[in-house]
Design a binder for these strands. Structure first.
Lengths: 114, 114
DNA sequence: ATATAATATCGTAAAATTACGATAAAGGTA
DNA sequence: TACCTTTATCGTAATTTTACGATATTATAT
């Protein structure tokens, strides 16, 4: 018996990494904030709505979603603070659309690190 | 005066969309869950650590981070439930590594919709 | 000036997240 | 068996998030 000693840790063939996650500092903070903003079902729905309704006003989104106006406004603020959308004041209303430039940044960063 | 009537909404030149966000149902849920998991600074750090320390055990991460063991274990659970990492039990310890397949799915989905 | 419309903000309640110490569970060792 | 190691889970406190109604703000219309 005992043909070979029991190796106690071959178990791990280091896998070639599937991503590098090479990011840090303020860029990492910014990206994590964007992930967090996107990591809520309601906010993600707002993002989707804005793709097909660019320039729509807050009221349109309020009509579309089953939640109160104040709540929608709050979610819009989170998305704005994360830089994912832009609100352009037009009279008493506000036109919202995706923040093209920042979303391009997001796409590139995610592409680099994942 | 009044050379032209005041147009009350030219203001919006519909921008060509910078992304399509074409996703829904369970795939959307899954993706949003991943965004949420990544949207926390500590968890993002754990992901980064796993890139450079594949197969490390919980204790290694606990040493690396300035938070309690219970908290690390909780964060690992969130990442596991989101499918971002994998825990392989090895004796009394658990080896953690990124979930290659699911992260590849994540990369592709994000690439498609953003 | 007053009224109306649209939206942001305030105050607050409920729920979820984050963090910790203590304990339990599971595996290895003497 | 008893002990040690490692990690997950439990119970709980503090913080944050989510949601709402009410109110303030800003611009337009009368």
């Amino acid at each position: 018996m005992a043909i070979a000693t029991k190796e106690h840790k071959p178990k791990f063939i280091t896998p070639e990494p599937c991503c590098n996650l090479e990011i840090d500092g303020l860029e990492q903070e910014r990206l994590v904030t964007m992930f967090k903003a996107l990591g809520n079902p309601t906010r993600f729905e707002i993002m989707k709505y804005l793709v097909t309704h660019p320039g729509c006003i807050t009221g349109d989104i309020v009509e579309y979603l089953p939640i109160a106006q104040a709540t929608v406004s709050q979610h819009l603020k989170v998305l704005r603070d994360a830089g994912l959308i832009e609100g352009i004041i037009d009279g008493p209303a506000t036109n919202y659309c995706l923040h093209n430039e920042n979303i391009t940044w997001f796409r590139k960063k995610v592409g680099h690190i994942f």
